[in-house]
Nucleic acid binder design. Structure first.
Length: 463
RNA sequence: UCCUCAGUAGCUCAAUCGGCAGAGCGGAUGGCUGUUAACCAUUAGGUUGGGGGUUCAAGUCCCUCCUGAGGAGCCA
């Protein structure tokens, strides 16, 4: 590259001052007077813009002054101290040349746009401050997670996107098929004959890599998956998308306590990592998106997470001086309002709720000695809600088989999964972290559609 | 899927009881010797989400559909 990144200019301004430089980027804003003008140039390497100043000494001064916002530029000039307040230095241009002109109907203006409008132009919104910050943090968070696990000896496992079984018996799935929807082959009973489908059976997009990764856990001990998952639920909320990413670690010779310790360490590590590596972006979020963000994250990094059993949580909610739309009751799942009250009012920090009634949890969760609860845990965080869900897995072959049958699932579908308990089974545990929810938690963004580059939600899969 | 709210210029929003559809920003044109979402002046820009109805008259009231948002459920 024959040009200098703006990130480098900000980092090494001292050495670069009074030197001739070339930069390339896009016009964020432009302010012109009769004899001189200013361009705020962003090259994507850094959150901040570089101010370019040019005068009518440039032969093409009038032309450049007419460049629409969004135009991509090549600028050569000298880095000089800025005489005006607002920026420590600026590039005094000796030549400015358009690489790609923008059209006059460029939709991004020098003013605040609503997030709703920006969702209609997901291909252009990364050129705004907020989305540039969001997607840099998203990228950094992925890197932080990989770093955390690799430093601890975890193996990254790529579980399949196309699956043959429904992992948890919960959640609508997207069917994967090459059959002609207008005239699918039928069997003798008139049902669709999936034996003639591409894979010779019914297949779907994955809703979780957990069951698959358990096999690798019982070989590598410490493993994780990190990839896209798909849910065909018709849920319309700020926190749900049809396509989202999940991180699912799984550790062997471990119980629920080890699992929670891992979750807490992971969350604290990635928060510290992002605070350290994206200070400008985080400062921006704290200023314009959520003014209590940095304080809250700092608090989480320093706090010891709370632990409370489901049974105790229900008691606390029943004793609370608070009128709930749904009265808390043992045996029923916690409502969103209950979860919020626990994390935001009672504990005011992340809290693990553990040992849920077996009836409301998945079949693979380990049955406790009381025979009525399972070794499950949900991590509830203020403002975002459930961010992690996990459990110690049932390692006892007979108990697991019994649970599969109790839940009305077909044992033959889970033969391979039962096999893991037959051939050298071991206690193991794991959890799932919703990647987008973590991004929301770290940025203060309130809508999941604003932390996914091209979000997919019910009735919405444009671009 | 259910409940609630909303849809007016490219964007963000006004429009009183049903009575001539407006402003700021953005665009165009001109002015301005250091701007910081620059400033000043002029100007263009509308099938008020689609369809139907009530009325002398509908952006406004009614029906319906579409789209978006918030909440609930489901969950991560």
């Amino acid at each position: 590259m024959g040009w200098t990144a703006v990130r480098k200019i900000f980092a090494e301004a001292g050495q670069l001052l009074n030197q001739e430089l070339e930069v390339r980027g896009w016009i964020r804003t432009q302010r012109e007077s009769k004899n001189f003008a200013f361009i705020e140039l962003n090259d994507g390497s850094c959150f901040k813009n570089l101010q370019v100043v040019y005068s009518d000494k440039l032969a093409n001064f009038a032309t450049v002054a007419k460049f629409p916002l969004g135009t991509s530029l090549k600028v050569t000039g000298t880095l000089v101290p800025s005489p005006a307040a607002g920026q420590p230095f600026e590039l005094k241009a000796e030549a400015i040349e358009a690489i790609g002109l923008s059209a006059l109907d460029y939709p991004l203006q020098k003013k605040r746009h609503s997030f709703e409008f920006l969702r209609t132009i997901p291909h252009l919104r990364p050129r705004t401050n907020t989305f540039m910050a969001v997607f840099r943090v998203r990228s950094l968070l992925a890197y932080a997670l990989h770093t955390f696990f690799h430093e601890r000896g975890f193996v990254y496992v790529h579980t399949p996107i196309i699956t043959a079984s429904d992992a948890e018996g919960a959640g609508q799935m997207f069917r994967v098929t090459t059959l002609d929807p207008k005239s699918p082959p039928l069997d003798e009973r008139g049902a669709i004959d999936f034996s003639q489908d591409f894979f010779g059976r019914e297949t779907n997009l994955t809703v979780s890599g957990q069951l698959n990764v358990e096999g690798f856990c019982l070989a590598f001990n410490k493993v994780y998956t990190f990839g896209p998952t798909f849910r065909a639920e018709n849920s319309n909320t700020q926190r749900h998308a049809s396509e989202f990413w999940m991180i699912e670690p799984e550790i062997a010779f471990a119980d629920l306590g080890d699992n929670m310790e891992l979750a807490e360490d992971m969350l604290k590590f990635v928060i510290r990592f992002v605070l350290e590596h994206a200070p400008q972006e985080m400062e921006f979020f704290n200023r314009f998106i959520d003014t209590s963000l940095l304080q809250r994250l700092q608090h989480v990094v320093e706090a010891k997470f709370e632990h409370v059993t489901y049974t105790r949580a229900v008691e606390l909610l029943q004793q609370a001086d608070m009128k709930f739309n749904f009265p808390p009751e043992w045996g029923k799942d916690l409502q969103t309002e209950h979860e919020r009250y626990l994390s935001e009012t009672i504990f005011q920090k992340p809290v693990f709720v553990t040992d849920y009634p077996k009836e409301i949890k998945a079949f693979y969760m380990r049955l406790n000695d009381d025979n009525r609860t399972v070794a499950a845990m949900d991590l509830l965080v203020p403002d975002v809600g459930e961010i992690i869900g996990g459990s110690q897995r049932e390692e006892r072959h007979d108990v697991l088989k019994k649970r599969i049958m109790e839940m009305g699932l077909k044992v033959e579908d889970y033969e391979w999964y039962l096999n893991l308990r037959k051939f050298g089974g071991a206690p193991h545990a794991g959890f799932g972290l919703g990647f987008e929810r973590a991004v929301m938690y770290l940025t203060g963004m309130e809508n999941i559609r604003d932390v996914i580059p091209y979000p997919r939600t019910p009735k919405s899969a444009e671009f």
